[in-house]
């Protein structure tokens, strides 16, 4: 005996639940995944704004579990919440957008790493900097290594352009999305910029 329920009805109900939870202020976090030229991306947002962008290689389940711990566990999948973000990302990957106009929630950026991560937005589209130069700009000329780890732990990659920071010798350096993804972003910006 099979007590079937219609999966598409269930999907509708889930989307409706996310809508009313968001409207009622009952959500700590909404998330969805989107396809991109650098692989599937996870987008997560609080009421304030986008709080986390993650690459598939970071393991979305693990990322969400850490977000539940750091931000709150009232988390639902919501497609609608990210219509705007998805459109801006599509434009960026098509080469027609050079800056993002999305509210961000910086609560995952702490201390010196947070300082570095805020500084990243000053590196313009199509240009690059180096860990050493960034350390100097922040008044900590010997902190290149710490700047490197701040870039590597940027909770908002792509939106906050840590991919524009290279090693002082010009080599590509680390990236949360992998070096290949970093190269894709740099080439995209060089081509369109």
């Amino acid at each position: 005996m099979r007590f079937d329920v219609d999966d598409t009805r269930l999907d509708d109900l889930r989307e409706r639940l996310a809508d009313s939870a968001y409207a009622g202020g009952d959500l700590d976090l909404a998330y969805r995944t989107v396809d991109s030229p650098v692989g599937e991306l996870l987008l997560a947002a609080t009421e304030t704004g986008v709080v986390r962008v993650a690459f598939a290689r970071e393991d979305f389940d693990a990322v969400l579990a850490r977000l539940a711990d750091a931000v709150g566990s009232r988390i639902l999948l919501s497609r609608k919440r990210f219509d705007h973000a998805q459109r801006e990302l599509e434009e960026y990957f098509a080469g027609s957008r050079s800056t993002f106009d999305l509210p961000l929630d910086r609560r995952l950026s702490h201390g010196f790493r947070g300082e570095v991560q805020r500084q990243l937005s000053s590196i313009g589209y199509g240009t690059t900097s180096s860990y050493g130069r960034l350390a100097q700009q922040l008044g900590h000329p010997r902190a290149a290594r710490a700047v490197g780890s701040a870039c590597a732990t940027n909770p908002l990659p792509i939106l906050v352009p840590c991919h524009r920071v290279l090693r002082s010798d010009g080599s590509i350096g680390e990236y949360a999305g992998g070096q290949a993804a970093k190269r894709v972003l740099l080439e995209l910006e060089a081509r369109a910029g």
Binding site: R14, L17, L29, Y31, L64, A65, L67, A68, D69, S73, R74, I75, L76, L77
Partner: peptide, 9 residues
């Protein structure tokens, strides 16, 4: 540490 609520749904 609670899992994301989406898992329960």
């Amino acid at each position: 540490m609670r899992a994301p609520f989406e898992r329960a749904v």
